[in-house]
């Protein structure tokens, strides 16, 4: 009897679970909005937005989402603008002139990003609170060794003060990505706000003038965001652009065949065909001998 009851209970539970999975409304996926602050070359700041959703334990970019970005507080007067994310879920917006006065007075600031509710996603909001910071690059030369010193300063009242324990990256900008300037991935600022990296990539190819671009930056820093500064230095090897377009090469056009190939191929061709022509002449000779009925002199 007890066993029979257990079977009934099991059957009811299975049915209930099955019905639940059929009729239960599928929950809406949750939208996540990332906000990033950027300051390139200590000039105009801008904000980056990344909209994503977690599906099956993976973050998937969500495109075409309108996100309103505010400075300080969520009010129309503080609106920096509206971003519509692209197919990679990314978008960015620079600070408009209308907030310049407010921006100049701030030492610390807050960026608020609020997505506009749509059919698929509800409105979500995210914010970051940061301190205004600037980055400086100095080149050093001591005992035949080149170094780069990166200084981070933060705004305190009307002054810019160096700040310690900030993790920075000092890299060489290349076509495809960045290359670390020294042996370490990151460098931390000391009490003077300075992080120094030795330039070990001697002989690095530069542009035609031997210039390479050094970049000092903070990446996704919780206190200062993404600030970066570039500096062109003449520490590279001048790149000599070898243009073989007009030269005689194996892969050039027919009128620019290498001379050695022309001579070699020509020599072989002429030699073999000279033999063939000689043989044809021999046939003519045999023919002539037969036609004239030469006496057998051999």
């Amino acid at each position: 009897m007890k066993l029979q009851n257990n079977y009934k209970l099991f059957f009811i539970l299975i049915t209930a679970f099955y019905c639940n999975s059929i009729w239960a409304e599928e929950p809406k996926p949750k939208l996540l909005v990332d906000v990033g602050y950027h300051l390139d070359n200590n000039t105009f700041p801008f904000v980056s937005i990344f909209t994503k959703s977690k599906i099956e334990k993976k973050f998937i970019a969500v495109p075409n989402i309108s996100v309103k970005v505010y400075l300080g507080q969520e009010a129309d007067a503080n609106l920096l603008g509206t971003v519509i994310t692209n197919k990679y879920g990314k978008g960015m917006i620079s600070f408009p002139v209308s907030v310049n006065t407010l921006w100049d007075t701030l030492s610390q600031f807050k960026l608020i990003a609020t997505s506009v509710a749509g059919k698929k996603y509800e409105s979500v909001s995210n914010e970051v609170s940061l301190t205004k910071a600037k980055i400086y690059i100095d080149t050093l030369w001591a005992d035949g060794v080149r170094s780069i010193a990166v200084t981070i300063k933060i705004k305190s009242g009307n002054e810019w003060k160096p700040v310690k324990d900030v993790e920075t990256k000092i890299v060489i900008k290349r076509s495809v990505g960045n290359l670390s300037i020294g042996d370490k991935e990151t460098y931390t600022t000391d009490s003077t706000g300075k992080a120094t990296a030795e330039f070990t990539k001697v002989g690095m190819p530069g542009d035609a003038g031997g210039n390479i671009i050094i970049v000092g930056k903070t990446e996704d820093n919780e206190l200062y965001g993404n600030i970066s500064l570039e500096r062109k230095v003449k520490w590279g090897t001048p790149l000599v652009n070898v243009n073989t377009f007009d030269q005689r090469t194996l892969f050039a056009t027919r009128d620019k065949a290498p001379l050695w190939l022309l001579f070699l191929a020509g020599f072989i061709f002429i030699t073999v065909w000279a033999v063939i022509i000689y043989l044809f002449l021999q046939i003519i000779k045999i023919r002539k001998a037969g036609m004239e009925n030469w006496p057998d002199i051999a």
Binding site: K285, K288, D296, A298
Partner: peptide, 20 residues
Amino acid sequence: SFWKGLAIQEKINNKAVTIL
């Protein structure tokens, strides 16, 4: 038709075949 089997023809022919 020009081949008469003359010694001179044989000689030229043999030489030509060797070169070939």
